[in-house]
Design a protein around this nucleic acid. Structure first.
Length: 465
RNA sequence: GGCCUGAUGGCGGAGCGGUUACGCACCGGAUUGCAAAUCCGUGAAGCCCGGUUCGACUCCGGGUCAGGCCUCCA
């Protein structure tokens, strides 16, 4: 199966061929850990989690290395630490842990490695030194700046020319910059901020250098796939390319840094960008209190990753309802045994077509339907096994079906419900319909829906309870 | 101003130059003590204007609208 992905650098869908199929490398820009992640931050996590799973499926679990960095040096972190009177690692460890827990709730696998800036400072300093030595950066007033004009293909990823950028510059040019577009590799720390040693004096790294340094140090150049949000194309990824290549002596083509670039689109919120000033920030940490993480995950995968996705309550409701359908089928056929089954070709094909998750989801629906309508045990077993195998590739449907419907109920409530159900079964056996209806109503008031069947009764908690 | 997306049925959302996407919701039927679920079925689309074509939702040109990036940002 050939994997096709849309490469931002080439602006086209191209066949993915790893440099070494025994060691496929993927790097995705991760969080700056000074606060909670919002649902927009979760989109690349979930999207590239699917890619990670797909690559593992194609090349083997042990042949894919997925790195997602944790940025633990940053102005916002410094600010939070100062306000709370603690060291920065108190803040960063706290929010890195929460981040990983929240992303796990969304069904995201842990990356192979999560490099942190503070633990890669030597590599960062070394890369900056190499860039300086190669004549692509200069030191000035304690800063080290990348010399944009020295790198002839600068702007290729975002399709901007240095001339255009200079013409459109609307930022005041710092006195130590030769050129408005030059960006910081190293800068002096302000009083009270954490400081690291460097040949240019105490200070800390600029925003972009961490990724290129950690990529070179942990994965080696070039990596196969570099991913991130659309907004990172410029300047972040553009600068990464410049740094990563200019630290090498021989650089010719931009693809020698990352061979494929993938960027996910943004979430919209009623045609508004989510931002703190608009007060429409939806934190994953809060959303998962109301909605199963799996429903949020399905919602994030309901549209193609490159397009915009409007995040609305309806989207969440529909995603949840769709999962009700899948888990309903799995619950009804809980007794059907499952065997090891390859991922259905149609699902693999959909995902190999630039991660077409909506199509993969449609195939999942077809399998659920096949399970419902199968006429014999053999067909049921096949359909169920394929549904679960396809779901696994998408990071879906791996939970317990009973738990999906009953998960929100604690032990007390469950016991209460079970008692009422038992009473109701007795009433029905005696054909005492008024009593059976009375109990149904009582359960309804508890937010419970009873489903009768030939063999007894089962129940589910209604959404939002 | 530059760069880049998107515009499909009530809603979400794909593929495809000529045939059912799929899901959610709705409606009709079967089934059910009631109900849910399930099954069968119906209805419902392609921003506007040109062009190419025997034929366009699908290709080309123009326009309109919406959004993003160009400054921290997934």
């Amino acid at each position: 199966m050939k994997l096709q992905i849309h490469d931002t650098l080439r602006r086209d869908k191209v066949e993915f061929v790893p440099q070494n199929p025994e060691r496929v490398t993927l790097y995705v820009c991760g969080p700056t850990v000074y606060s909670y992640a919002h649902i927009g931050n979760a989109r690349p996590v979930v999207v590239f989690d699917v890619l990670f799973r797909l690559l593992r499926e194609i090349y083997g679990e042990d042949h894919v290395i997925y790195a997602r960095n944790i940025t633990d040096v940053d102005d916002k972190i410094n600010k939070a630490a100062m306000e709370q009177g603690v060291e920065i690692d108190v803040i960063t460890n706290h929010f890195a842990d929460i981040y990983n827990e929240d992303m796990a709730t969304l069904g995201a696998l842990r990356p192979s490695m999560e490099p942190r800036v503070t633990r890669n400072m030597d590599a960062i300093v070394a890369q900056i030194a190499a860039i300086v030595a190669n004549g692509h950066a200069y030191a000035e007033q304690g800063h080290v700046l990348f010399d944009v004009e020295s790198f002839k293909t600068y702007g290729a990823l975002s399709r901007r020319s240095v001339d255009d950028m200079i013409a459109g510059a609307r930022v005041e040019v710092a006195p130590y910059k030769r050129n408005a577009q030059d960006f910081v590799l190293w800068k002096p720390s302000k009083p009270g901020e954490p400081v690291w040693d460097s040949p240019w004096g105490g200070g800390r790294p600029g925003w972009h250098i961490e990724c290129s340094a950690m990529i070179e140090a942990n994965l080696g150049l070039p990596i196969d796939i570099h991913g991130g949000g659309h907004d990172l194309i410029f300047p972040h990824h553009e600068n990464e390319i410049a740094q990563g290549l200019c630290a090498q002596h021989a650089h010719g083509h931009d693809s020698e840094y990352a061979r494929y670039w993938m960027h996910n689109g943004f979430l919209d919120f009623g045609s508004e960008k989510m931002s703190k000033s608009l007060g429409n920030v939806k934190l994953v940490h809060d959303l998962i209190k109301e909605t199963p993480g799996e429903a949020l995950r399905l919602a994030l995968l309901s549209g193609h990753y490159r397009g915009p996705l409007e995040w609305t309550p309806e989207l969440v409701t529909q995603s949840r309802a769709r999962l009700d359908g899948f888990y309903g089928a799995l619950r009804r056929f809980a007794a059907v045994p499952v065997r090891d089954e390859a991922v259905p070709p149609a699902i693999l094909e959909a995902l190999c077509d630039d991660l077409n998750t909506p199509r993969a989801l449609a195939e999942l629906s077809a399998l659920a339907k096949a399970l419902e309508t199968a006429s014999d045990d053999e067909a049921r077993m096949t359909a169920k096994s394929q549904l679960l195998a396809g779901g696994a590739l998408l990071g879906l449907l791996q939970g317990d079906a009973e738990a999906w419907f009953k998960g929100g109920a604690d032990e007390d409530l469950t016991a209460k419900i079970d008692a009422l159900i038992a009473e109701r079964i007795a009433a029905r056996a005696a054909k005492n319909w008024p009593e059976a209806d009375r109990i149904r109503k009582a359960l309804d008031e508890l937010g419970v829906e009873v489903m009768d069947s030939a063999t007894g009764a089962t129940w589910k908690l209604k959404a939002g309870v």
